[in-house]
Amino acid sequence: MSRPAASADVFVAIADPTRRALLDRLRLGEQPVKELAEPFAMSLPAISQHLQVLCEAGLVEMRKAGRQRLYRLNPEPLKQISNWIVHYEQFWQEKLDALGDYLEENQCSET
């Protein structure tokens, strides 16, 4: 079974905080790269590189409108992450329930 290239891996793509922030901005709708780059203290080429990683992972789609490149969110690949996290939600819920039971059983009584 072949492994996808690291740049096409959804987990690798969202590992970077700048890319996660770009995804958050794209939740608001399609935007040009210049608008996406506004809040970041980095160059347009650096933002474009981050967007390229997101595109390769399938999280972002790009279309050209005249001379502009417009980017939009494609949330479908995030299901892969959601499916992975589900297994850990049950684990942590059981641990938190056990902690709650322990704390109830071992409460300090104030007198």
Rank of each mutant, 00 (worst) to 15 (best):
E35H: 08
G100Q: 01
R25S: 04
L28M: 05
L54H: 08
K64T: 07
E110M: 12
R25N: 00
M62T: 13
L44W: 08
C108W: 05
E61A: 15
L36H: 03
I47K: 00
R27N: 01
W84G: 04
L59W: 06
R19M: 11
E30P: 10
E61L: 14
C55R: 09
V10P: 09
L103P: 09
Q90L: 15
P4H: 05
V33C: 08
A13N: 05
N83G: 14
R69A: 14
Q80I: 13
L36D: 07
L78A: 02
L22K: 12
K64R: 12
A5F: 14
R27F: 05
V33K: 01
I47G: 07
L44Y: 11
Q90I: 11
D101V: 07
V86N: 02
K79C: 00
T111C: 11
F40L: 14
R69N: 14
F91A: 03
E61K: 09
L26P: 09
G66Y: 01
P39K: 06
C108M: 11
I14N: 04
S48D: 08
L78C: 05
M62R: 15
A98Y: 07
I81Y: 02
D16R: 02
E104Y: 02
R3Y: 15
E76A: 15
A98H: 05
I47A: 15
L26M: 03
K64N: 04
L51E: 02
R20S: 02
C55L: 09
Y88F: 13
L73F: 10
A41M: 05
A13D: 04
R19K: 04
E105V: 00
E94F: 04
Y88A: 06
M1E: 14
E89F: 10
E89Y: 12
L70Y: 01
P77A: 10
P17R: 14
P39T: 01
D16T: 04
A41W: 10
P39Y: 06
Q31P: 03
S2Y: 07
L23E: 04
L99S: 00
E35Q: 14
I81K: 12
G58M: 12
L51N: 05
L54F: 15
R25K: 06
Y102E: 05
E38F: 03
T111R: 11
M62E: 12
D101C: 06
A98I: 06
M62I: 11
D16M: 08
Q49W: 07
